[in-house]
Design a protein around this nucleic acid. Structure first.
Lengths: 253, 253
DNA sequence: CGTATCATTGACGTCGGTCAATTCGTGTGG
DNA sequence: CCACACGAATTGACCGACGTCAATGATACG
């Protein structure tokens, strides 16, 4: 939770073989075009778990494509209450907002060690001008993120603690399982503390703990260490009102 | 709350003199360009209060620019619980989502009689191709809407009932007052029932009623009939953690 | 080992929900 | 113009889901 911004560590990059080539902003570009884009970007970098990426009320000079790791996006109220807005996974485009010169509306920090592709803010509109299909891609991405935020809102506003927890955990469960294709394990690595879950759901850590105990005792899921095991995905989706089809839909393209 | 979809009633349209010319999707277009766009659209229409615009789980064949009136965007859970996601005001672009061929993720219905500019779904990408700046504008709009949804999420997840109500009411208060320029009245027309407020905030109507009474007795605001009167904007913003500057920011461009 | 973070649990308090009755307001038909 | 209807607002009595406070364990790490 602490914010100890570290200097970005440069690592080698190659857009054509990028691990999120088909999910990120630049997905619509051909191998030829993407070589050009490479000139606009600053490079790839790594950050350690706990580091801040950008911060509420500060103008953020770069945009990021998350290549590896988890990032938490959140808002802090004056008195310290925290609302986690989203957990960003590889492929996410971070830092974009209507007015890039305005201070950020939320903060971002690393839940795990991460790797990001860094893109200077001032180059973004040049890029869009050079490749109009990227502006459309940007609209697609922000629309998807908006839809997920609204889904999250419904979850927090209108579901019980048990339903909320089930719903929150199923989202990353299906997302990371889709990528870690082939072996459809029912366990995933989940780098979240119960405090993260609480702050994402508008609950307290104590109540999240009790809720998780209930779900565990009902043999629906188990969290031990940083591993989430879903024992009964169907029943859990039922409880959560989680639409597996819609999640699949969001993942496509 | 009932959904009685009515046939759209055609009314005359002229894009150049459109009342939301500078806020809508087509804001970046010159008078010359907008004439061309006029060929893509179906026309302007009106709908009565209570009519549905589009519905969750149904593919919606048109996109809409709201010209006049208020529209409620919401999701319904299987058991009938409702979460209102946003109240759309004139200038809003409605119906856009990542995959236009997929069923809508939420529903929309008219809080008041409305007027909309109707745009066939299948023409959208042609339009973007013809005018790339519109794709960028679309990204801007969806990013703004996403930021508002996240603000709403924080409101519901991390604020008390009193704070939530204050926050929810200040948003439209400043939005409509900005447009109804000049006379900075402290009253606006608010076409919401307490049930709408409750469903937007994750509360019950009973508790919203009690909360409003508290705010009224503290001489902070008053709702009578369909009129909201804000008696102490500064104090209310303080309570709500409402950032007037950020709201102004969102309204610009 | 000492220290820090996270998880867990019990006792108890409260904010907001539930249920149900009453009132108000507006529009409608007689 | 009045009686009635129906949705919305209001209120009281009571309840329960979730929060608060505080203590205790479990893990990890330098």
């Amino acid at each position: 939770m602490s914010h100890r911004p570290k200097k970005l560590l440069n690592i080698p990059s190659n857009c054509r073989t990028c691990s999120v080539r088909n999910e990120a902003l630049c997905a619509p570009l051909s191998d030829g075009e993407i070589a050009v884009v490479e000139h606009f970007k600053s490079g790839n970098c790594t950050l350690p778990a706990g580091a801040g990426l950008y911060s509420q009320d500060e103008v953020c000079s770069d945009l990021y494509t998350l290549l590896d790791g988890w990032v938490s996006l959140y808002q802090i109220l004056e008195d310290g209450r925290r609302q986690i807005l989203d957990f960003a996974l590889p492929g996410a485009f971070l830092g974009f907002q209507p007015n890039l010169d305005a201070p950020a509306s939320h903060s971002a920090y690393c839940l795990t060690d991460i790797a990001v592709c860094v893109f200077p803010r001032e180059n973004l509109f040049d890029l869009f001008r050079a490749h109009p299909e990227l502006a459309l891609r940007m609209a697609w991405i922000t629309a998807r993120d908006g839809a997920m935020a609204r889904e999250h809102l419904t979850n927090v506003g209108r579901r019980s603690a048990r339903e909320r927890v089930a719903h929150l955990l199923l989202e990353p469960f299906y997302r990371v399982r889709r990528k870690a294709d082939a072996r459809q394990e029912n366990s995933i690595n989940l780098p979240l503390t119960q405090e993260h879950i609480a702050d994402a759901l508008g609950l307290t850590t104590v109540h999240v703990n009790r809720t998780l105990r209930g779900l565990r005792q009902a043999d629906l899921l188990d969290i031990s260490g940083r591993t989430l095991t879903v024992r009964d995905p169907a029943m859990l989706a039922e409880i959560a009102g989680f639409d597996v089809e819609a999640a699949r839909e969001r993942a496509s393209a």
